[in-house]
């Protein structure tokens, strides 16, 4: 955020490097519940809340998080924030909670949250970490909403379970086309990979 302008940050971070489109497997555990626009939106919101909460928490305590305990603390925070989101959902959106069931819990072990927390939030101040969480969450939510809406329009039928993979597959192809167009129109400036000095391999976007 320091060297790159916001626009570039948004483009690199949220489009070229977007975990949702580039590495769809991150969304896979959640796709099964995206059977309708409402469910997808609900789960997307939950995902966004967990992303923002975890990013903010990790970023606030980033100076206390030495390498030895970072992963443990991040996982603990993810699980706790997911539980809080689950409780709030149960208290104020009971119908939605019932429809989503176990899938809200699954957000806790979504590596995309861990990726943002471990690769971004733990080396950035809280403000960019918050923005990062919001943007990543928003993109995830839009993708899930797209999948949910298309599946809802297809109606319940034989194609439904297949559609959970077909629809995001098509979206991913579309994303790749746009990315290639972008790359062709403008020779790419080197995209700074985030080096955290951790032992974990970087798995998102460009390696």
């Amino acid at each position: 955020m320091n060297s790159a302008s916001f626009g570039e940050f948004a483009k690199n971070g949220r489009w070229l490097d977007n975990p949702g489109l580039v590495l769809l497997p991150g969304l896979c555990p959640l796709l099964a519940a995206c059977t309708s626009a409402t469910n997808a939106l609900g789960l997307g919101l939950a995902m966004m809340a967990v992303l923002v909460g975890t990013n903010l928490g990790v970023s606030l305590f980033r100076n206390q998080l030495s390498a030895a305990i970072r992963l443990a603390v991040m996982l603990m925070l993810m699980a706790a924030i997911t539980t809080v989101v689950e409780l709030v959902m149960q208290a104020y959106m009971f119908k939605l909670y019932q429809a989503l069931g176990i899938f809200v819990t699954l957000v806790a072990c979504n590596w995309m949250v861990l990726d943002r927390a471990g690769n971004f939030a733990c080396i950035h101040p809280s403000k960019p970490a918050l923005v990062d969480g919001l943007l990543t969450g928003a993109v995830c939510m839009l993708l899930m909403l797209a999948v949910g809406t298309i599946r809802e329009l297809m109606g319940p039928g034989a194609l439904q379970p297949v559609a959970a993979f077909l629809v995001p597959g098509l979206l991913m192809a579309l994303g790749n086309v746009i990315t290639r167009r972008l790359a062709r129109s403008k020779p790419t400036a080197a995209i700074g990979t985030v080096a955290v000095g951790s032992k974990r391999a970087r798995v998102t976007g460009r390696i």
């Binding site: 539980t83 809080v84 409780l87 709030v88 149960q90 208290a91 104020y92 009971f94």
Partner: peptide, 10 residues
């Protein structure tokens, strides 16, 4: 804290 806050409603 979250449990206390939401328990009655749940």
């Amino acid at each position: 804290f979250a449990d206390n806050l939401t328990k009655a409603q749940i």
